[in-house]
């Protein structure tokens, strides 16, 4: 199984990490979109299991969660989904979800099953390092990396503590707020990446609000190891609902443009 380390060392510049809600808008279309994204140059995938109450997500991803849930995606089907993605290509996968889904499945079993399906890391959107002991041990035991977030208002002492619990990469939130496309990129990124690089050797990937090739280029130029793009891609799916081919095509075209920019 390909590791983050291998990907980060192979790439000059920043890795391209698109985010998708598993099963958005439905299982089959979602799988085709993601295969297309891989073929268009995605280096790592960030995949989210939909949740009924995603408090860290803006309207675009909320709607995607609802679409996927309405079309029958489940945690169990997400496992099958990931196996199919891995069968297409051995690409590292970061899994993103809310804690209740892990807790109800059974934390240890959840990590073991998703690791076996081909996931490299887990990021729980509503779990900070303060309660991380509930998950870091079981995740490591299952062979998974644990990804945590850093924000523009995280102080240095806490960044060090977050880095010590993090493996794989640090998910750096570029702005204060929930997920969603923004017209302007946060002015705090360069400073934040520089600060993080001075405090830890864990790779730094930046997400939230990145929606244009020039945003991605700026994040890469700031020294980030990876660029995470979510809502913009999800909005392309939303704009082409009902036309499977157009969904797949618009996402691949966008991925290629970003790939060129970084």
């Amino acid at each position: 199984m390909k590791s983050y380390k291998e990907v980060f060392s192979e790439i000059d510049g920043a890795a391209l990490i698109p985010f998708f809600v598993i099963g958005d808008p439905d299982f089959d279309t979602s799988l085709e979109i993601i295969k297309g994204a891989i073929d268009a140059g995605a280096d790592i995938l960030e995949l989210g299991i939909p949740f009924s109450d995603p408090i860290a997500d803006g309207p675009t991803i909320q709607k995607a969660d609802i679409r996927a849930l309405d079309n029958g995606i489940t945690v169990v089907k997400s496992l099958e989904f990931i196996k199919k993605v891995k069968a297409h290509k051995d690409i590292p996968i970061g899994l993103l979800m809310y804690y209740n889904l892990v807790y109800q499945y059974g934390t240890e079993k959840f990590f073991k099953d998703f690791h076996d399906a081909g996931v490299n890391s887990v990021l729980i959107a509503d779990l900070s390092i303060d309660d991380a002991d509930e998950v870091v041990g079981p995740a490591k035991a299952a062979g998974l990396d644990t990804v945590f977030m850093v924000t523009p208002i995280t102080d240095e002492e806490r960044i060090k503590r977050i880095a010590s619990k993090t493996s794989g990469f640090i998910y750096t939130v570029s702005l204060l707020g929930v997920t969603g496309s923004r017209n302007e990129l946060s002015g705090r990124i360069e400073e934040l990446v520089a600060k993080l690089k001075g405090l830890t050797d864990v790779p730094i990937c930046v997400g939230f609000g990145i929606s244009k090739p020039e945003h991605a280029a700026a994040v890469a130029a700031a020294g980030a190891d990876g660029v995470i793009i979510g809502s913009k891609i999800v909005s392309l799916i939303e704009a082409n609902l009902g036309d499977k081919e157009k969904c797949v095509e618009s996402v691949s075209v966008f991925i290629s443009e970003i790939k060129k920019a970084i």
Binding site: I55, A56, Y99, A125, D126, L127, S128, D130, D131, F148, M149, V150, T151, I153, T154, D155, R158, I162, V173, L176, G177
Partner: peptide
Amino acid sequence: MKEKGRFGDYGGFYVPEVLIPV
């Protein structure tokens, strides 16, 4: 946080990182 905010095993503060400082 100074305290765990637990009532037995219940409670805690399961929130996104950005809400921790506040």
